[in-house]
Structure formats: structure tokens, C-alpha cells
Design a binder for these strands. Sequence first.
DNA 1: CATGTTACGGTACTGAGTACCATTTGGAAC
DNA 2: GTTCCAAATGGTACTCAGTACCGTAACATG
Lengths: 201, 201
Amino acid sequence: MSTNKVPVESLRDRKRRQTRERIIETAFALFMERGFDVVTVDEIAQRAEIGRTTFFRYFGDKQEVVFSTEDDFLRALTAAMRDAPAEPLQDLAQALATSRRLLLAICAEAARNPGHYAVYHRLVKQHPELEDRHTRKTRHYADLLEKHLIDHGTPPATAVLAAQLTLACYQAAWRLGSHDAMAVLREANDAFDLLLGATVA
Amino acid sequence: MSTNKVPVESLRDRKRRQTRERIIETAFALFMERGFDVVTVDEIAQRAEIGRTTFFRYFGDKQEVVFSTEDDFLRALTAAMRDAPAEPLQDLAQALATSRRLLLAICAEAARNPGHYAVYHRLVKQHPELEDRHTRKTRHYADLLEKHLIDHGTPPATAVLAAQLTLACYQAAWRLGSHDAMAVLREANDAFDLLLGATVA
DNA sequence: CATGTTACGGTACTGAGTACCATTTGGAAC
DNA sequence: GTTCCAAATGGTACTCAGTACCGTAACATG
């Protein structure tokens, strides 16, 4: 029973992780070097020393490499949700306080490797289609957030509103356009202060 | 002077408009019939009796046909902005009232051809990539709205917030998922009431 | 070592989007 | 009308993303 789910990383797993990381590094390097749409999948595959086919086994499409850290954010978010105090959240102020904390948990995760975030930020900002997808991911987080609030007793209407407002704060911070993860964290925080000042006061 | 900008529609212009409309109708029919990604541009071109090349002269890419009514919305929005009373907008309540009116002007425009809206709605909802782009368009309106508020004396911070909140109301209405344009209009209205009740009261 | 399973790379295909070119057609001036 | 110009069109050929399929190599397990 104690050895129930020991995730011993087999040789296969290790290799898989390594090639995955090699693809990501190669792709980001090329994208930053010459721009997202000029770089072909063939090039990435060649430089990463894999077959073209293999690339698509690791990533559904070319864009998906850019969002390869999404899982980390999801993990951070769910962890923050798990660790959140189980106090009931009824009114908007409470819901906002909680969702603010959760949002900042994600930003903090992003701030863990600032270099990567900077590159990600510049890349996505320069390509409308990438930014579209970024927004979709963002909305996904908002959905999870909304669900969390509802699960903890927030009335649906309030939860939807709170999630949207939280999303708005992040969007504001994002659009302010800092390449620095810590700065985005601060800006999102400021936006929240502004929002709360406008609504609560 | 009176005949200054008479937009006499030349034969060329008329033909151009006709083929454009023919493409749109054909494409929507095919998309609804068999799904967006299954239909090829070749098919659309064939059925619309134009060359493949011509299609891309009218629309930048396959997706763009779906958003062919965007110009109408932009016209409706700018018209509503133009006709808006020139009263100064300082606080959040005033800004929200104005941006609410502008948002509803767009929704009203959408409600002018309910059939088209219903098809558009279903189509976009079923295809994440289309919804991504829909969101981008939506954000564009919010930007215009924000600019309008600022131009009329709203402090930037307040304007950004008001625009984001307006966007949130629309998003809520959109996500509620009604295929009926009038219903979306009503839902957006309700969301606004909810928001104002939470903040003002 | 023998087995089954999983990852891999190559080939071939479809379809989107672009570049280029020759042809046609509408507009305008004479 | 005729001539001339600009715009619209359609075709060909190309690049590249993404998918399907298949044989082979690498790892895992007994």
C-alpha cells in the first residue's frame, strides 16, 4: 500500500521529458531569433534532432509549444485552491479576496522563471493569433476560479461576476505590457486595489 | 457642394458587393451544413462560382468570412458614439451608463438580422479558434469604448475599469449561450443591472 | 533471452495561404 | 465608338501545417 503510486521515473519517462524540454528550448530560441511564423516545424525538429512526426506527438500544433508551461500554472492554481481556507464565501468582497489570492498564486508561479516569462510575453504580444490563444487559456483559469467560488458557497451570480472582475484585473496588468513577471504581479495587485477602491468605497 | 460625396455605386462596386455577399451566403450555408473545418475554401469558391484566388482577395483567411458583419457593428458603434450626448463623464456610474448604452447599440445592431446572428453564434461557439477570434474582436470594441470615455473626460483609470466591466457584462451574456440576438441583448442588460446593483447599492 | 509495448522516423497526402502572371472587364477620356 | 488605364479575376505553382499509415528501434517485463 505504501508503494502504491510511486512515480519512479523510468528511463523512458526521463528520455521523454528530456526531448520535450529540448523541443521547447529549441523552439523558443528560434522563435525569438527570427519570429514565430517564419520558423517552420521542420527547422525545430531538425535542430532538436527529432523527426517532424515526433514534434506533433509532443505538441498538438506549432502554437502549443509556446504554451508549454500551462500545466505548471494549472498545478499552481489547483494547489492554491486546495490550500485555501474552507471558510464560506458569500458576498462579493469575500469572493474577490479569495479570487485575488488565487490569481496572485498563478502570477507568482509565472514569476518563478522570469526569463521564460519575459520571452513568452514578448512572443505572445507580437502575434495576434498567439494572444488569442493566451486569452483562451486565461479564460480557462477564470472558469476554474468561478467553479471554486461556487463550490465554496458563493452564489453563482456573484461568482461569475467575481471571476470576470478578476480576469479583468489580470487583463489590465497584461495589457500594461511589462515583460517582467514580478511587475505583472504587482500591476495585477494594483488593479485589484483600484477595483476594490471603486466598488467597496 | 451639395453633390460632394455622393457614393454613386458604380457597376464595379455593385458587382463586388454582390460577389462578396454571394461568398458569405455560400460559406455560411456550407459551414452550417457540414461544419467549419470540413468545408474547404475550394468548395466555397466553386459553389460561389469564383476562383480560389478571388476568395482570398475578399477575405484574408477562411475564418474572416465568419466575421464579415464586423464592419456593421463598428459602424453602429461609432454612430452611437457620435450621437452620444456630449456631457462630461467623470465618475464610474456615469461612465458605466454611457458604455452600457453603447454596448446595447451594438447588440441592437446584431438583433437587426436575428437569423444571421443565430448562425454566427452557433458556429463560433462550436469552434474554439473561432471563439478566440470573436473574443479578439470583442476586445477591440472595448478599446474603442475606453477611448471614447477618455475623450469625454473620464479619468483613464475609471475608463479602463468601465470598459472592462462592460466587456464582462457582454461576455456573461454571450456565455449564457442564447442563440437569439434579442435574448443576448436582454441578458447583457440584466448583467449590467446585476453589476450596478453590486457596486452602486 | 524472448516477449509485448511504446516511441520513433519516414513517406505520402490534404488543405490553407502566398506569389506571380496572363486575361478580362469596367471606367474614363477623347 | 475607340482607345487607354486600372482594377478584378482565375489559373498555376509553391511553401508549410497537420494527419494517416507503416515499418523499425528502444525500452520494459517475465
